[in-house]
Amino acid sequence: MTARPANAHQARLLRLLRDGGPNSRAQLGDQVELSRSKLAVEIDRLLETGLVVADGLAASRGGRRSHNVRLAPGLRFLSVDIGATSVDVAVTNPELEILGHLTEPMDVREGPVAVFEQVLALADKLKDSGVAEGFDGAGIGVPGPVRFPDGIPVAPPIMPGWDGFPVREALSQDLGCPVMVDNDVNLMAMGEQHAGVARSVRDFICVKIGTGIGCGIVVGGAVHRGATGSAGDIGHIQVVPGGRQCACGNHGCLEAHFSGYALARDAESAAVDGSSAELAARLAAAGRLDAADVAAAAAAGDPTSLTLIRDGGARTGQVIAGLVSFFNPALVVIGGGVTGLGHTLLASIRTQVYRQSLPLATGNLPIVLGELGPAAGVTGAARLISDHLFSPA
Rank of each mutant, 00 (worst) to 15 (best):
L46D: 04
W162A: 10
E278S: 11
G287H: 09
L14I: 05
H257M: 06
V91W: 04
V319P: 00
Q118G: 08
S172I: 08
C248S: 03
S386C: 10
F116Q: 12
R310Y: 04
A281Y: 11
L345G: 02
P166N: 12
N23S: 15
F204R: 06
I158P: 05
D311L: 14
P149W: 09
R288E: 14
N183M: 08
L57C: 03
Q356R: 12
N68G: 05
A247P: 10
G29W: 07
E117K: 13
G377T: 05
D124H: 04
G232P: 07
H257V: 13
N93S: 14
F390S: 10
C215Y: 00
G50W: 09
D182P: 10
L346R: 00
V167N: 04
S200Q: 15
V272S: 08
A267D: 10
G235A: 01
G226V: 10
S275E: 03
L13K: 03
G373E: 00
G141Y: 09
H9C: 08
G337M: 01
G151A: 07
L187I: 06
N328I: 04
A299C: 02
T316F: 09
H257R: 06
F77T: 05
S357K: 00
I349K: 01
K125I: 04
S276N: 01
G210Q: 04
E169A: 15
S276Q: 08
E255R: 06
G141T: 07
D136K: 04
D128L: 15
G221H: 07
L389N: 06
D128H: 11
G161R: 03
G322L: 00
A292T: 11
D174P: 00
R350K: 08
I385V: 14
P5E: 05
S79V: 12
R315S: 02
V333G: 13
C215N: 02
H257F: 13
Q118K: 13
Q193Y: 02
R64I: 14
G212S: 05
R4Q: 13
L75S: 06
L122G: 07
A11C: 06
G252M: 13
A299F: 03
G312S: 04
D19I: 09
Q173T: 07
A298D: 00
L283A: 02
T379H: 01
D150P: 02
M159L: 08
G83Q: 04
I237Y: 03
G196C: 15
T344F: 04
G249F: 13
L345P: 01
K38G: 01
V219W: 14
A138N: 05
V89I: 12
V324I: 03
F135L: 12
V53C: 11
V240D: 08
G141S: 15
V272T: 14
R199D: 09
L323G: 01
A280P: 02
S325R: 02
I98P: 00
L51F: 04
R168S: 09
T379A: 08
T307S: 12
D203T: 10
R225C: 05
A155R: 14
